[in-house]
Amino acid sequence: MIWLSFIFALGFVSIHLFSKSLKLMKVLPRSRFLSVAGGISVAYVFLHLLPELSVFQKNLQGELKNSGLLFIESHIYLIAMIGLVVFYALENSVKVSKKKSKHVEKPKAAIGVFWLHIVSFTLYNGIIGYLLVREEYENSWGMTLFFIAMGVHFITNDKGLRATHLEDYDRYGRWLLAAAILIGWGIGAFTEVHEWIISMLTAFLVGGVILNVLKEELPEERESSLLAFCTGLISYSILLLLL
């Protein structure tokens, strides 16, 4: 399925480069589609990625006993929590930076915070590109479901990053995030690593997705829709359970 994964990687790249042109991204108040997208991402995390972490943990028993990574065998979910905390810290730094420039008509984060934010999301995208190849899918449908869940998640992330960093995101950020997908895919396609690395990357991704979805859904100014969120969550959950 290497060619299918490459096509999906190009799909991710297209989302980052052209999501700004989507009509739904220009809808104010916030498009209901973005709430549906959040529901889809959460459903994928809780019904696919989290159960997979449990499998990883079982498979790792005894594999790391002679290394400094022994704790991962029993605490894989700790990595997921670290992923959540890392992205929470990033969002907090962005909020603090924007408050300092609130006197400006369109406040945005300081350039240093922008680069910290973008570098972190570049690594985040690289992990997704890598897992697009290295994740163990039962069939092409499994990879397709991953693509759909992460694709709509990228649309939501793009909306948030563009609103936070304005022209800096379009000038630099989206290109770096798009490139990170292809770099991650290339590493996954041409190298093979131990299962514990895949398990750590998956766990970190889980924490990141959960935080990034919730920070887009919960703030009052987002004008998100509970009905749309639940529609995406329930419909995608049914799809995951049936396939």
Rank of each mutant, 00 (worst) to 15 (best):
residue 168 D to S: 15
residue 156 T to Q: 15
residue 9 A to T: 14
residue 151 G to T: 01
residue 138 E to D: 05
residue 48 H to Y: 06
residue 214 L to V: 02
residue 60 L to M: 01
residue 166 L to F: 14
residue 114 F to S: 03
residue 176 L to S: 12
residue 32 R to K: 15
residue 83 G to M: 04
residue 206 V to P: 11
residue 113 V to H: 04
residue 147 F to I: 00
residue 206 V to H: 11
residue 167 E to D: 13
residue 194 H to M: 14
residue 28 L to D: 12
residue 17 L to Q: 06
residue 160 G to M: 05
residue 27 V to A: 06
residue 240 L to F: 02
residue 35 S to G: 09
residue 54 S to G: 15
residue 62 G to D: 08
residue 228 A to H: 04
residue 151 G to V: 06
residue 169 Y to F: 15
residue 86 V to P: 01
residue 87 F to R: 05
residue 64 L to D: 12
residue 15 I to T: 03
residue 78 L to C: 03
residue 144 T to N: 10
residue 226 L to M: 13
residue 216 E to A: 05
residue 135 E to Q: 13
residue 221 E to I: 13
residue 214 L to E: 02
residue 221 E to W: 08
residue 62 G to W: 11
residue 23 K to R: 14
residue 194 H to N: 15
residue 178 A to P: 07
residue 20 K to C: 00
residue 33 F to R: 00
residue 161 L to T: 00
residue 219 P to F: 08
residue 135 E to Y: 15
residue 84 L to N: 04
residue 126 G to K: 11
residue 2 I to D: 09
residue 29 P to V: 01
residue 149 A to T: 11
residue 192 E to S: 15
residue 175 W to I: 04
residue 35 S to R: 09
residue 14 S to H: 02
residue 57 Q to F: 08
residue 126 G to L: 11
residue 47 L to C: 09
residue 107 P to N: 03
residue 106 K to V: 15
residue 157 N to A: 07
residue 28 L to P: 00
residue 20 K to L: 00
residue 166 L to Q: 14
residue 140 S to N: 13
residue 59 N to G: 15
residue 27 V to F: 03
residue 185 W to V: 09
residue 139 N to G: 06
residue 89 A to G: 02
residue 84 L to R: 00
residue 108 K to H: 08
residue 228 A to E: 07
residue 175 W to K: 11
residue 1 M to T: 07
residue 5 S to P: 04
residue 215 K to Q: 13
residue 57 Q to K: 11
residue 160 G to I: 02
residue 38 G to A: 12
residue 8 F to T: 05
residue 118 I to Y: 10
residue 81 M to C: 07
residue 20 K to S: 10
residue 177 L to I: 01
residue 114 F to E: 00
residue 196 W to K: 08
residue 52 E to V: 00
residue 208 G to W: 04
residue 140 S to E: 13
residue 218 L to F: 15
residue 139 N to S: 12
residue 199 S to V: 12
residue 182 L to Y: 10
residue 145 L to Q: 14
residue 25 M to W: 02
residue 3 W to R: 06
residue 158 D to L: 01
residue 33 F to H: 02
residue 209 V to M: 13
residue 197 I to W: 15
residue 126 G to N: 10
residue 153 H to F: 03
residue 195 E to I: 12
residue 214 L to Y: 13
residue 80 A to T: 11
residue 20 K to V: 00
residue 51 P to W: 08
residue 29 P to E: 02
residue 200 M to R: 08
residue 81 M to S: 12
residue 34 L to K: 06
residue 195 E to Q: 12
residue 235 S to K: 07
residue 236 Y to V: 03
residue 35 S to F: 09
residue 230 C to K: 05
